[in-house]
């Protein structure tokens, strides 16, 4: 079973809560996914629509909340959002995101490392969202990150794992769990991450924007389980030359 910062998770699929067509669909999809940890963001209350509230449908006894710092452009903004999330009862867990460029939403490695150091000192359980950079992943675990969350491809692109080589190195080197986050657009992408040895995946857009988010959540759950099972079973090695599955001998009668 997966353990992060001493907490055990039966599901290796973490869910995002953004982009769903309604709170009801989100709730049903999260239930179908079997996930135990969900990300949430922090934003101003819409004064024109103050009742609009996802918290009314999310059961905090069922899901561990992982507030994110989405929208933060530097370490200072991320730290401020983190402190607000904790003050709001969001707990110590935090998905640290520092994305200065709204076009790519690629994370800033320098500011992410800086913010991780500050927040770990303040007692947060920090899961930083990072580019698939093995050197940065090591630096982050050295300063106390509870896990690292390398991207498969940029947020919301559904492009799958474009960073497989680097993610493999991160997994090989990591002493903390590796959660592949962002860009996983299909269950096969999630299965691929798990087959590579990732400890978990985080999926939001692919489920939320699916034609049927509830069925897609179920499909991701199955893919994550299949991928993990395959990883633990031990995949056969890749070869350059063919290796017949049928016996080579026993064909004397043909010749």
């Amino acid at each position: 079973m997966l353990t992060i910062a001493g907490r055990v998770f039966r599901s290796r699929l973490f869910g995002g809560t953004g982009k769903f067509s309604s709170p009801g669909v989100m709730k049903e999809a999260l239930d179908a996914s079997g996930c135990e940890m969900v990300t949430v963001a922090l934003r101003r209350v819409d004064l024109a629509n103050p009742q609009d509230d996802i918290m009314s449908v999310l059961d905090r006894r069922k899901y561990l909340f992982l507030p994110n710092t989405s929208g933060a452009r530097d370490a200072d903004e991320a730290v401020r959002l983190a402190r607000l999330a904790r003050a709001a009862g969001g707990g110590e867990w935090l998905k640290l995101e520092v994305t200065p460029d709204p076009r790519t939403l690629l994370p800033d490695p320098v500011e992410t490392l800086k913010a991780t150091e500050i927040l770990v000192r303040e007692g947060f359980i920090v899961l930083p969202y990072i580019n698939a950079d093995p050197v940065l992943a090591l630096r982050l675990q050295d300063v106390g990150a509870a896990a690292v969350m390398p991207l498969g491809s940029p947020i919301g692109t559904n492009q799958g794992i474009l960073t497989a080589f680097q993610i493999s190195i991160i997994i090989e080197q990591a002493r903390v769990p590796v959660v592949v986050d962002a860009g996983l657009g299909a269950p096969s992408h999630a299965a691929q991450a798990m087959e590579m040895g990732a400890d978990a995946v985080l999926v939001n857009t692919a489920i939320a924007v699916a034609g049927d988010p509830v069925r897609m959540a179920r499909a991701f759950a199955m893919a994550v389980e299949a991928g993990r099972e395959a990883y633990e079973a031990g995949l056969g090695e890749k070869r350059l030359e063919a290796d017949a599955s049928s016996p080579a001998g026993g064909l004397d009668f043909l010749r």
Binding site: G16, K19, T39, A41, L42, R44, S70
Partner: peptide
């Protein structure tokens, strides 16, 4: 005064 809440996010 800033009123803030948790909203859906990834």
């Amino acid at each position: 005064v800033e009123l803030i809440r948790f909203v859906g996010g990834g």
